Amino acid sequence: MASSTLLGHVDDIILTASSSEVLCQIISALQHEFSMKDLGKLHHFLGMKVQHRDGCMFLSQQQYMMETLDRAGMAECKPYSTPVDTNPKVSTDVGQPVQDPTYFRSLAGALQYLTFTRPEIAYVVQLSDTRKSTSGYAVFLGDNLISWSSKQQNIVSRSRAKAEYRVVAIAVAEASWLHQLPSELQSPLHRSTLVYCGNISTVYMSANPVQHQHTKHIEIDLHFVRERIALGDVRVLPIPTSFQYADIFTKGLPSSVFMEFWFSLNVRCTNALDGTWLDKLRAGEAGAPGDDMKAFRYTMFCLLVRQEARGGPWLELRLEVVKDPKF
């Protein structure tokens, strides 16, 4: 059965289909009804630049980043190894209010939009001081990071296990939708979604069918996740901290750990994308493109998407929750 997916924003459209023939038919039908132009292979969309190189796509917002830095008066500032202090001291109760709140909010909004291709700054652009837990997850399709989140939970949790189980349910719901999407494009995923969680209590709760008094506040989340596990759609597994990439969405990390996780999210320095480095990348042997932090300019990064995942497609989640580090 032929299928297609259309993503539209005002007069900008991205269209994909299960075959090139179906794609051409849809474009012809749209052009018959509307005044529109086929711009060919995707190369720009809503300020994002798409580059196609040797079986990979590189998504970047270089021009948008340069304009944001210039608007903030920071175009000539030197880069820093991590975007957030590992011991944050920012508080809503300390310091003088900004003179122009509208200007400040516009810059904060610009940074949030930048997280579409710079996921490693998702935590710092929404940092605040409350007792609510910060939850984060990363969804990979094969080697490709396709969805991520870093946000504070709506309510204060009395235990880390409860806070983490809430984000398990949210992430499993996201993965369930993403798992279905390739099937609509005639490329179904045949493996269970792997959910890696750093809290061992949460892993046990997902496998234990017995309800306890301490879990009654998250009973709906428990039933939802266990149902997906019973259907074979999801497996919840423990993961050591050294491989928990989702930590980058929930707290400030030391430079060495930050850079390792940053690279695991497939964020790359664009001026390091030469042929030799790409060959190593496809073979899984590429390391970080140099240790000189001057090379890692904020205006020179992109998000890598491999068009063919190594070892076939599969869906994988990594998630983490932390309490506000100041409490």
Rank of each mutant, 00 (worst) to 15 (best):
I170P: 00
M36S: 07
A286D: 08
L189F: 07
R166M: 10
H52V: 07
L189V: 10
H223E: 13
I200F: 00
E76D: 15
Q61C: 07
L111I: 14
S157F: 02
Y298H: 06
G290D: 12
S187C: 04
F58S: 05
V10N: 12
W277C: 08
D54V: 04
Q99Y: 07
S19I: 07
S91V: 09
Q213W: 05
A122W: 09
E174H: 08
M65G: 05
G55A: 09
S157P: 04
S147W: 04
S255E: 12
A272V: 08
Q99K: 15
E67D: 15
T202V: 15
H52D: 11
A246W: 03
S91W: 06
L237H: 06
S187Y: 02
L30K: 03
S201W: 02
G47E: 05
I218F: 03
S255Y: 04
E320Q: 13
S18C: 05
D38L: 01
Y123G: 04
D274R: 07
Q213T: 12
S157V: 04
S4V: 07
I13R: 01
T250D: 09
K280M: 14
S35R: 10
Q126V: 14
R310C: 10
T241Q: 12
L253I: 11
R191G: 01
E308D: 13
K162I: 12
Y137G: 05
S256G: 00
K151L: 01
I146H: 03
S20Q: 14
K326H: 06
L15Y: 10
G198C: 05
A29H: 15
F301G: 01
I146E: 00
R297H: 11
R318P: 03
A17K: 01
S157Q: 03
A169Y: 02
M36N: 04
L42Y: 01
K216Y: 10
H32K: 14
R191S: 12
A161P: 01
E219V: 13
L23S: 11
S187P: 00
K41Q: 12
V236K: 00
V322A: 10
K78Y: 12
V22Y: 03
S157A: 15
L107I: 15
Y245G: 01
C56A: 11
G95E: 06
V195D: 01
S28G: 10
L59F: 05
I146G: 04
L231I: 03
D54W: 02
I146P: 03
Q244M: 09
P97D: 05
L39R: 08
A175R: 03
D274C: 13
L265M: 14
N199Q: 10
D274L: 09
L107S: 00
G311T: 12
T115L: 06
P79T: 06
L114G: 10
D93C: 11
V203S: 04
V168N: 05
D38M: 04
H44C: 10
H44A: 07
S256K: 01
I239A: 00
F116P: 04
K49E: 15
T102Q: 12
A272C: 14
Q99M: 09
S159M: 10
S106I: 07
S192R: 08
S264I: 02
R166Q: 13
D279R: 13
M1D: 13
L265Y: 02
P289D: 10
T16H: 05
D291S: 14
D100A: 10
I218V: 15
A309T: 01
I13Y: 10
L46D: 04
D143E: 15
T102W: 00
C77N: 13
